[in-house]
Computed example of a mutant assay.
Amino acid sequence: MGAEAVPALGLLGSVELPGVAESVGTARRYVRGVLEKSGLRDTYDAELLVSELVSNAVRHSESGRAGGLVTVVVANCGETVQIAVGDSGSATCVPRVPAEPDEDAEGGRGLWLVSEVALSWGWYEGAVGRIVWFRLARR
């Protein structure tokens, strides 16, 4: 097998976006472009889940305040791709998955959707905020 047939592991791209609702679409387009450039054909799940995480970051973290930022990082992990969304965190709100999402509610299904679609996901607090990540199979 030639070296060109082995995918390079590691960072595929990252982008820092303003913590505003309009950044959700920008993040979705960014992830689609990075994944397509890396050879992935099916980007729908990645676009859907990054939309949910960026929406949550803007709505529920300090990144949604004036001047706040959200960071999206895309990495090739061999058989999977990992996407992480970093925000400024929140002293009053932590990521949680509802046992049963309210079908009539306007929100509240984002992390439930991530937990249902992703191979794995998680979150942690870092020195500069919160990171929420998920992994999907490369296809």
Score class of each variant (00 low, 15 high):
100 E>L: 14
100 E>T: 15
100 E>K: 07
100 E>A: 13
100 E>I: 14
100 E>Y: 10
101 P>S: 05
101 P>Y: 07
102 D>K: 05
102 D>V: 00
102 D>I: 01
102 D>L: 03
103 E>F: 12
103 E>K: 13
104 D>N: 05
104 D>L: 08
104 D>F: 07
104 D>E: 11
105 A>M: 10
105 A>Q: 10
105 A>H: 12
106 E>K: 12
106 E>T: 13
106 E>G: 15
106 E>I: 13
106 E>D: 14
106 E>N: 12
107 G>D: 14
108 G>I: 09
108 G>M: 08
108 G>N: 10
108 G>C: 08
109 R>K: 11
110 G>E: 03
110 G>C: 02
111 L>I: 03
111 L>P: 04
112 W>I: 00
112 W>K: 02
112 W>M: 02
112 W>T: 00
112 W>P: 01
112 W>C: 02
113 L>T: 15
114 V>L: 00
114 V>D: 03
115 S>V: 01
116 E>N: 13
116 E>C: 11
116 E>D: 12
116 E>R: 15
117 V>K: 13
117 V>T: 14
117 V>R: 12
118 A>V: 08
119 L>S: 15
119 L>M: 14
119 L>R: 15
120 S>D: 09
120 S>E: 10
120 S>Y: 03
121 W>L: 06
121 W>H: 11
121 W>V: 05
122 G>L: 03
122 G>K: 06
122 G>V: 00
122 G>W: 04
122 G>Q: 07
123 W>I: 02
123 W>Q: 04
124 Y>W: 08
126 G>S: 08
126 G>M: 06
127 A>D: 09
127 A>G: 07
127 A>F: 00
128 V>W: 12
128 V>P: 07
129 G>R: 01
129 G>K: 02
129 G>E: 04
130 R>G: 04
130 R>W: 04
131 I>C: 10
132 V>K: 00
133 W>H: 07
133 W>Q: 04
134 F>S: 06
134 F>M: 02
134 F>I: 05
134 F>N: 01
135 R>G: 03
135 R>D: 04
135 R>F: 01
136 L>I: 09
136 L>Q: 09
136 L>D: 09
137 A>V: 14
137 A>S: 14
137 A>F: 11
